[in-house]
Simulated scan of single mutants.
Amino acid sequence: MSVAESTKNSMSNKKAALADLYSDIARGNMFPFWATSDSVDNDEIKQLMATSKAIPFVWKYTDIEPMLQRAAQLVTMDDSERRSLILVNPGLAPKRASVSTMYTAYRLNDPDEIMPPHKHSPSAIRFGLTGQGNFTGVEGEDVTFGPGDMVLTPNDAWHNHGTVGGEQAVNLSVLDLPLVEMLHAVHFDHKYTEIENGKEVEKKVQTARYPTDYSQRIYGEGGLMPRFVNHKRGGGLSSPMYVYRWERMEAVLDAHKDWDGDPHEGIVVDYIDPTTGGPVFHTINFYVQMLRPGEKTLPQRETASLLLAPFRGKGHSIIDGKRYDWDQFDTLAVPGGCWVEHVNGSSTEPVIFFGATDAPTQRALLLYKRWGRNQAGDLLRLA
Rank of each mutant, 00 (worst) to 15 (best):
A333Q: 07
H231C: 08
V143P: 05
L307F: 03
D110T: 15
I272S: 02
Q328I: 15
P263S: 05
L87V: 14
I272N: 04
S80D: 11
A97G: 02
A255C: 06
D156Y: 13
L92A: 00
Q206K: 07
M249H: 13
Y22S: 03
L382R: 05
D213P: 08
E81F: 13
G236Y: 07
P117T: 11
L183H: 12
D38N: 13
W326E: 01
Q206T: 11
H159K: 06
P350L: 04
R217L: 11
M182Q: 06
R83S: 05
L177N: 02
S2G: 14
E65M: 06
V164I: 14
E221M: 10
E349G: 00
I284H: 12
P310C: 00
G337Y: 04
R323M: 07
L332C: 07
W326Q: 02
R83L: 15
V40Y: 10
V252K: 04
I25F: 11
V151H: 00
D110N: 14
T297H: 06
Y368E: 07
V205H: 08
D149T: 08
E295Y: 09
E181Q: 10
N29A: 14
I114F: 00
P226A: 01
D258M: 10
L152D: 02
S84H: 10
L365P: 03
D112Y: 01
L177D: 05
E221D: 10
R217F: 11
S98I: 14
F135D: 02
I45D: 05
F228T: 15
G372T: 13
T303V: 14
M77F: 08
M67L: 15
R363H: 11
D262A: 01
G261V: 06
S305Y: 07
A208E: 13
A54L: 03
T348Q: 13
Q375D: 09
V268C: 06
G28L: 03
P335Y: 08
R126Q: 06
S100I: 15
V3A: 09
R96I: 14
T357G: 04
L18T: 12
G137L: 07
P226Y: 00
P90T: 10
Q289W: 05
E5S: 06
F33S: 06
H120D: 13
W34S: 01
K199W: 08
F281R: 01
T193R: 03
S317Q: 12
S100P: 04
E141K: 07
A93I: 13
G140W: 10
D63F: 03
P350H: 03
P116Q: 09
T357F: 02
L179S: 07
V252R: 03
M225P: 07
I86S: 09
G222A: 15
D149R: 02
I267G: 00
G315S: 03
K203Q: 12
P154D: 08
K8F: 13
K14P: 03
T76D: 07
K119R: 15
N109R: 12
R301F: 00
I25V: 15
S10W: 15
T275D: 09
K46P: 04
I318D: 12
L18F: 14
G133D: 04
L18G: 02
R292Y: 11
G355T: 07
P178Q: 04
V252Y: 00
Q47M: 11
R70Q: 13
E302Y: 08
G277Q: 11
H161V: 13
S347Y: 09
H256P: 03
M49Y: 14
V288K: 04
I195C: 01
V343L: 04
S173W: 01
W259F: 12
D149P: 05
N9C: 09
I25M: 09
